[in-house]
Amino acid sequence: MNDAIDGFPLDAPARSPLLPAAAPRESMSHVIAEALRAAIVDGTLAPGAPLRQDAIARHFSVSAIPVREALRQLESEGWARTAVHKGATVAPLSADEAREIYEIRSALESLAIGLAIPNHTAATLREAAGLCRAAERESDPSLYVGRNEAFHMSLYAPAARPQLEDMIGTLHRRGERYLRLKFGLPSYKGESDNEHAALLDAVQRRDIPAAQSLVVTHLLGTGDLLHRFLTERAQAEAALANQPKPRARRTRTTSGS
């Protein structure tokens, strides 16, 4: 995350626009929350960065009210944290949270795919296959997270369980930062694409036990990998921080003869 910044707003122009254009019928608090979430996912806003209400309000030319609503929404979703007298900051990356998100997803998505398979049609299967190919072709981490979610959700939509779908969608959003992180790990992309293809094949064959087993293995494996990576990174950072600082050399001066 070399392009991450220390807070909001940006001190230097971004390579691409940070904030999307507002849709006419969207509430301002929703627009602000979506913009901040996107900046957190793509690494523009780093973990621990302050989310200053006054700066955000100036950026959007709004009052503090929709900004407070947006920050409350982000806090409820786990994207931000608020401390008394310190305000809101971007939530840190957590190895335990990453693993737990994928553990919960494995249970809910196994249920969803089992309910969905009997209701899949030729049309819904074609849609899922197209989304699977789109995710496989995508090389941009920021775009891949959306392609990945669209593919997964297409497998579960025929279940017609709106509350279950909403819970899964919330967990996908909670896991976006972690999925982007995993995208940069060696061999992840190819393994994930292969697992998606196998999962799609099981759904097309209407093999419910195989599909449930594959989705659980896929998600638990992702959670374990992220937990291991974040734990090792935290340990390396702690070890580096605890290293003694080298003493400054004292230069000798000699007088001329």
Rank of each mutant, 00 (worst) to 15 (best):
I113S: 14
N242E: 13
A64T: 05
T124G: 02
L74C: 06
T170R: 15
S27C: 00
A83C: 03
A135I: 01
E103R: 14
E75L: 07
E176S: 10
P24Y: 08
A129V: 06
S29W: 11
D201R: 14
P162S: 14
G256V: 05
A22Q: 12
I56E: 00
P50N: 04
E149M: 01
P66T: 11
D54L: 07
D11N: 03
T124N: 07
H218I: 02
E97D: 09
E77D: 13
T82F: 13
A80F: 05
L45T: 14
R52M: 06
D54N: 08
H227Y: 12
A123P: 01
G169Q: 10
L220V: 09
E100P: 00
R68M: 06
A107P: 08
L230A: 11
A46L: 03
P186R: 00
R174S: 11
P20L: 02
R81W: 10
A123G: 04
R177W: 05
L225A: 14
E103D: 11
E109D: 12
E75K: 08
N148H: 09
D224E: 13
L225Q: 14
A134R: 13
G175H: 05
L181N: 00
L220M: 14
Y188I: 05
G175V: 03
P118D: 09
I208D: 04
R105F: 04
D6G: 00
L71A: 11
V216A: 14
S192G: 04
L51W: 01
R133D: 15
D193M: 02
E103F: 07
D166H: 04
R105K: 13
Q212M: 12
R105N: 09
D140W: 09
S63A: 09
E191C: 06
L199M: 03
R99I: 06
S16L: 08
Y156K: 02
A241E: 15
G184T: 00
E232C: 13
D6Q: 01
L36G: 03
S154E: 07
R205F: 01
H152Q: 06
H120I: 01
A80H: 07
L36F: 02
S154T: 08
N242V: 09
V84M: 04
S192C: 11
A39N: 08
E136A: 15
M28K: 11
L214I: 02
